[in-house]
Computed example of a mutant assay.
Amino acid sequence: MSLKFTAGDLTIHRIIEQETTFLPAHEMLPGLTPEVLAGNRAWMKAARALDDSDTLILAFQSYVVKTPHHTILIDSCIGNHKPRPLRPAWNMKTDDTYLRGLSAAGVAVDDIDYVMCTHLHVDHVGWNTRLENGRWVPTFPKARYVFDRTEFDYWTETNAKTEVPPFVDSVLPVVEANKAEIVRNDFVIGDHVRILPTPGHTPGHVAFSFGRGKDDAVFSGDLMHSPIQTHFPELSAKFDVDQAVAAKTRRSFLERYCDTDTLCCTAHFPSPSAGKIRRKGNGFVCEMA
């Protein structure tokens, strides 16, 4: 299983926290018909994206990207000591899997220059903070944390109505520590890192493209959760706040990158999780690296 890729002058490491069954395919993808699942079950199982009970298998992971100038973490996964009662596998975790993964990639928490969040859902912000003497403090003390303005404002307003625990324990402490960069879509880091708006899953969901002068790699976040959504871009996930916009965004994204050399690094596709987008009939396929 590959945990390391190169693209242009980038070195990319996958940091896997969990790779496991998640939800039944029909529950996760409400538009998935029994006929479509039956016609795609074999290759999905062969790709280790579906188990024998038709439950989707997802990876929960971060990417560390080393450019010639910076070391950047994309999404910070689930985290430890976080109260997540609705997800027993995530609730009050105390394992060292994630930090061991960083260490195996030759990365220390002090090495990270930027933490960039595609969006602010629970499994993408968890290691933003760690518990120290009863307080949440930034896990990556030398990093600037990049949050999209639309996304941050959406969760600020939502949290004001009803407390959103991941926002409270994994985002606000970063802001309070003056480590946050709340940015708009024109934000760049040098000549290597750009934001690509990809709304639908959440209002301010973004992808990040990396490369000097062209997109050598793109990090798609929760634009898609399972490989079947490349074949059928109109299949939106139950967690997409606007399923119609998510479907339109997904097809546009896949059209943008199909038949290019851009390495598409997905958040949740099973290992190896990264590949090149190619056209397939009326849809697409991610040919894994």
Results as ranks from 00 to 15, higher is better:
24 P>G: 08
73 L>G: 04
58 L>M: 14
69 H>V: 11
49 A>E: 08
86 L>H: 13
95 D>S: 07
239 F>D: 15
87 R>C: 11
90 W>D: 15
44 M>D: 02
211 G>F: 02
2 S>Y: 12
79 G>M: 07
208 F>R: 01
87 R>H: 15
234 E>V: 09
151 E>R: 03
197 P>W: 05
113 D>G: 09
260 T>V: 00
61 Q>K: 11
251 R>G: 06
161 K>H: 14
184 R>F: 08
212 R>C: 11
154 Y>T: 09
241 V>H: 13
156 T>W: 08
250 R>V: 05
208 F>D: 01
242 D>G: 05
167 F>A: 01
229 Q>A: 00
234 E>G: 01
126 G>Q: 11
109 V>K: 14
27 E>K: 11
200 G>W: 07
15 I>M: 02
19 E>P: 12
178 N>V: 10
66 K>W: 06
112 I>L: 03
242 D>A: 10
64 V>H: 07
275 G>I: 11
17 E>V: 10
34 P>W: 11
253 F>G: 00
268 H>E: 00
121 H>F: 11
68 P>R: 08
41 R>Y: 08
7 A>Y: 05
178 N>C: 12
251 R>M: 02
187 F>P: 00
240 D>L: 03
10 L>T: 04
115 V>Q: 06
111 D>F: 10
251 R>S: 07
75 D>P: 02
17 E>F: 07
92 M>I: 09
67 T>R: 03
238 K>Y: 13
